[in-house]
Amino acid sequence: MSRARWFAHPLGSFGLLMVWMLLVDDFSSVGHWLLGSFLAILIPRLTSTWWPSLPRIRSWKYLFVFIWHMLTDIIVANFQVARLAFKKIDDLQPRWVQVPCELEEDIAIFLLASAISLAPGTVAASVDRERSILTVHALHCEDEQALIAEIKRRYEQPLKEAFACSAL
């Protein structure tokens, strides 16, 4: 048996082990590390038939850049939206924005849509795979082009670097 079959998904195995250790909430016991590793190796092997093919992560650095952008934007946008929630309703400009998306992998599109939805003030409402357009609803948007440019610069660019999209 080759090594590649044993560790079908090294990242998935690591994630499972961490989830197990967090669930039992005891990092000091050797038994739980053993049981967790056993499950982490066994479960991806047993379920490998149903896994979709996952893209390779080309650059970890850009993935962390993406996560950092996401977390900082969540905090900044929360304060902005908190101000909007107390404004007069007629002053708000809710708007649908069509964001063209150049990503190809499913998981990259999922991450992009999740980042847009998690940042308050914008929600990704539909993904059109044919024309690769994300429809985003913005709570208050004065400049459509600025919002699109912001999303492309802060989220899409790092994701494109991280997942080695060919459509560069």
Binding site: I74, N78, V81, S117, A119, V123, H137, L139
Partner: peptide, 23 residues
């Protein structure tokens, strides 16, 4: 939750829980 209560249409209300879950 105040946003969920105040906003006049569904798609605007959708932005309320995003705040509640994240921060």
């Amino acid at each position: 939750s105040i946003g969920l209560h105040r906003f006049p249409d569904f798609f605007m209300r959708l932005h309320g829980p995003a705040k509640a879950t994240t921060l």
